[in-house]
Design a binder for these strands. Sequence first.
DNA 1: CGGTATCCACATTGATACTG
DNA 2: CAGTATCAATGTGGATACCG
Lengths: 90, 90
Amino acid sequence: MRDLLLGRARFKEFSASPERIPTNILSERLERLRGAGVVERIPAADGTKRLAYRLTRKGLGLGPIVAAVRDWGLKWEPGTKAAIAAAPRA
Amino acid sequence: MRDLLLGRARFKEFSASPERIPTNILSERLERLRGAGVVERIPAADGTKRLAYRLTRKGLGLGPIVAAVRDWGLKWEPGTKAAIAAAPRA
DNA sequence: CGGTATCCACATTGATACTG
DNA sequence: CAGTATCAATGTGGATACCG
C-alpha cells in the first residue's frame, strides 16, 4: 500500500522495496487487494505488453489511514522513518 | 482499541462487546498492548480491589488511526456501522 | 469477576525452485 | 520480467475447561 500510494506501479518496483517481500507473497497480496477493489491492473505506461497496478478510488481512500499510522509511528515509535512525506505538524 | 477509546475499562466490558472475544484472547491482547505501552492498568474506579485498563497517551494517539479506518469503512464498505461517532463530513 | 491453561484450526509469511 | 508452485515455520484466533 505504501508503494502504491507513492505511485509505484510495477511488480519489480514493489519487489525492490526494502522489505524484500517474496514474490509469492507479493503476488498473492496484489490479488487480494484486487479482490477487495483497492487495486486494479492497467496496461504498463511504457507501451510494452506488461502489466501495471494502480490504486482505485477506494484504494486511494486508504491514504489517510496510512498517513495516520505513519504519523503515530513517527511520534511514538523510535526509529520510525517516513517513506511518504509526513503531515505538517499541526 | 475501540472499546478503550470509548472509555471502557473493565475486562467484563470488553468481554461483553459484540465480537464475543474469548477470554484468553482478550487477556493476551491486553498484555500485548501493555507491553507496547499503549494500555496501562489502574485500580478500578469503584474502590474495590479490581483492576481496570486505560489508554496511555501513546494509546490515545491511536485514535486518529481508528477514526480513519472507521471513516474508510463507512465510505467504502457496505454494512459498516460506527461504534464511535463518525467525523463530520468535510 | 477476571483471568490461565490446553489444544486445535487456520491464516500468513517466507525460502526456494521453477516457468512462459 | 512477472509471476506460480511447494512446503515448512510461525502467528493468530477460537472453543473449552478450569481456578483464586
